[in-house]
Design a protein around this nucleic acid. Structure first.
Lengths: 198, 198, 198, 198
DNA sequence: GATGAATGAGAGTTCATTCAT
DNA sequence: AATGAATGAACTCTCATTCAT
C-alpha cells in the first residue's frame, strides 16, 4: 500500500531517539545532530520529516505521551469491571505502569515528562496540552477512586475527586524524587495507597 | 542601608537577576548577557564575580535555596515548641511559606527549583545537593509529624517518616501543577492535610 | 486547447511559475520548492525537465524575454511601414508594450529583467546575452528614430543611434523608478518623447 | 577621548569590505564569513558591531550612499553660485562624480546601488529610503536645470522638473548598461546633455 | 571592577541536487 | 514523469568565555 515506508520508519526512529535523548540531556541540550547521529542519517534528513525542532516535540507528545495515557486508562478501566475487584491492587498496578518506561524502570519517562512542565512556561501550546492532560488524569482517577468507595474499599468521607488529585500529586512528587535519586525505594508509595483504605 | 559591601553588591544583583530570569526563561535560555542587561553592566563584568555560568548556579543554590529551607525550618520548629500547639495549623502555614516566592505567590520558586531537578541528571554536584535537600526535608517533616502524633493530632498507625514523605511528595506534585496552571485552587491541599487528622 | 504537448506542459508551467516568482522574490530567494509548490508537483519532478536552477534561467530567457523583444520589434516595424506614419505615436505605443507585463501593468517585467543585470556580473553567459539584447535594441531603436528623421518628425541634428540610445536609457531609468514607486506617474515619459520632436 | 577606537575601525572595515563584496557578488551571495575573511577577523566578531546582516545594509546606506549624495549636491550647488557659470559643464562634471566610485571608475557603485532596487521589492524600509532618494535627486536636479534656464543655457519650453527627471532616468539607464558592458563609451551621455542646450 | 572587542564552537535551518522506486 | 527520502554544504546567528585596556 505504502510506496515509501522507509519514510515512516525513519520518522519513528527520530522520535524514539529523541525520546531517549530528551530524557538524557534535556530538550535544549539535545541537538538535531545528536538525534540524527543516533538515527544514522544526516542532519538535513531531519527536515524531510519534521518542520522544526519544535514540531518534533509536538509529534513526540502526540505519539508517545498521549498514547501512553490512553493505554494505561483503558487497561485500568477494564480491570475495574472484573469481579472480584480489588481497587487497592489495581491502583498499585497503575503505579507500576506509570513508572515503567518502555525501556524498563529507569526514570526516562519522568525526565521527559518534566521537560514539558518547564517548557510550558514559555510555550502556550504545551501549557494547554498539559492542562488537558491534568483534566484527563483528574477525571480518570476520580472514576477509579469512586469505584473503590462504592465497593467499600476506600474511605467515603472524602470526595473521590480530592483523593484522586492527592494521588496524582503524590505520584508526581515521587516521580520527581526518582529523577534525583533513581534508587529510592518505592515501598512508601504502597503504604501511601494503603492509608486510604479501611 | 546597603546590605552588602560595595564589591558584593554587584554580585548579589547578579544572583537576584538570575533568580528572576531562571524562573522566567530557564537556565539554558537565559544568557549571561540577559543577566547583565538586567544588572546594567556589560557581559565582561560578569566574570569579575563568577568563574562561569555554572559557578553562578551553585552560588544561587547556596545563597537563595539553602537559606530558604533554613528559614522555614527554623520558624516551624519554634512554633512546635509553643503551647498550645496546633500541628495541623502549623502544617498549613508551612505550606504557605513553601509556596510563596519572594515576589508573592506566583510560581517563581517552583520553576526555579525544578530547573535543578532536570540539571541533576547531567550534573552530579546538583544531584547530590538535591539528595541532601531531600534528606533534610525528610528528617524535618518527620519531626513535625511525630510531634503531631505525640499530641494525638495525627493518626499513629503509620510511621511519621512515611507520612512526612507523602506530604513532601504531594506538596511537590501540587507545586508542579501550579507551574502548568497558576490559577489552580489550593483548597484541595488543605483537605489533604486534614485527611490525616483524627 | 492545450498549447503544448503533455510533456512540455509541465515544463511550461514551471517557466511561468518561475517568471512570477523571480519578479516577486528574486532569483536567490526563490527556491525550487517554491516553484514546484506553485506548479503542484514535488521538488524532484523539477529535475525531469531542467538540469539545474541555472538551466531554468536560460530557458526563461529564451522563451519569455527573447520572444517579447521579437514580438515588440515586429509589431513596431510593421507600423513604420504604414501610411500615414506618426513615429511619435508609435514610440508611445512601444513604451506601453515594454512596460506592460503579462499580468497587466505592474512592474513584474522590470523586476525580472533587472535580476539578470545583477546576475550578469558573475555569469558570463547572461552578460553576453544582455549585451546582445542591447545591440538588438540599439539597432532597432535607431531604425525607428531614423524613420522619424526621414519623415521630418524628429530633429536631425543628432545621430539616430544617439537618440535611440538615449531613449533606451531613459526608458530603463523610468522602469527602474517604477520598481521603487509603482504608482509613479508616466506623464513625464510622454513629455520626454515629445521633446525630441519639432 | 575614545577608549576603544579599534571598534570603530573594524566597523568601518566591515562596511568597506561589504561595499566591495555586495557589488561583486550581490547581497544574497555575500556571506558574513566572506566579509570577515576580508576584514581578517572571525565570523563572531561581526556581531559585536552589527545586529544582523540586514542591519549592516542599513548602516551601509547611511554611511556610504547618503553621504555620497550630500557630497555631490553640495559641490554642485556651490559651482552654480560661481560667475561665470557654465551649467552644461557643471552637469558633465556631476555625471563624472556619480559614475566614479571610491575605487575609481569601475561600476562598483552602480551594482551596489541596484541591489537596493531589487531589495526594495521585499523590504519596505529600503523602498522608502529609495523613494526619499528619488525625491532628493528630483528636487536637486530641478534646481540645477532651472539655473540653466535662467541663464538661457537650457531650453525653457519644458519644465525644469521634467528635464531633471529625464536626466536622472537617462543617467540611471546608462549606469545600468555599464553593469552589463563596463567598457561602453560615455560619449553618448555628453551628447545627451548637449541636446538640451541651445 | 568594568569595558568593549574578539573568539570559536555549535546551533537550527535552507536548499540545490541525487537517486531508487 | 514523478515521488519522497536523503545528502552535504552553506548560511545566519548565539553565546560562554577570554583578555588587553
Amino acid at each position: 500500500m505504502t510506496k515509501y515506508k522507509s519514510g515512516e520508519w525513519t520518522k519513528q526512529q527520530i522520535i524514539d531517539a529523541t525520546f531517549r535523548l530528551i530524557a538524557d540531556k534535556g530538550y535544549d541540550d539535545m541537538s538535531i545532530e545528536d538525534i540524527m547521529n543516533e538515527v544514522g542519517k544526516t542532519k538535513g534528513a531531519f527536515y524531510s520529516h519534521f518542520q522544526s525542532k519544535e514540531d518534533l516535540l509536538y509529534e513526540l507528545m502526540r505519539t508517545k505521551l498521549d498514547r501512553k495515557f490512553d493505554e494505561i486508562a483503558e487497561k485500568t478501566l477494564n480491570k475495574l469491571k472484573e469481579e472480584p475487584c480489588d481497587v487497592r491492587e489495581i491502583l498499585l498496578q497503575l503505579l507500576e505502569m506509570v513508572y515503567q518506561g518502555s525501556t524498563g524502570s529507569d526514570p526516562v519517562w519522568s525526565a521527559t515528562y518534566y521537560q514539558f512542565f518547564l517548557m510550558s512556561r514559555k510555550n502556550p501550546f504545551i501549557r494547554e496540552w498539559l492542562q488537558e492532560q491534568y483534566r484527563e488524569w483528574e477525571s480518570f482517577m476520580a472514576t477509579v477512586v469512586r469505584r473503590g468507595q462504592e465497593l467499600g474499599q476506600i474511605r467515603s468521607d472524602i470526595e473521590a475527586r480530592v483523593i484522586g488529585n492527592l494521588l496524582i500529586a503524590a505520584f508526581q512528587g515521587y516521580e520527581l524524587r526518582l529523577i534525583v535519586d533513581p534508587k529510592a525505594d518505592l515501598f512508601e508509595e504502597r503504604k501511601l495507597v494503603e492509608s486510604f483504605f479501611r
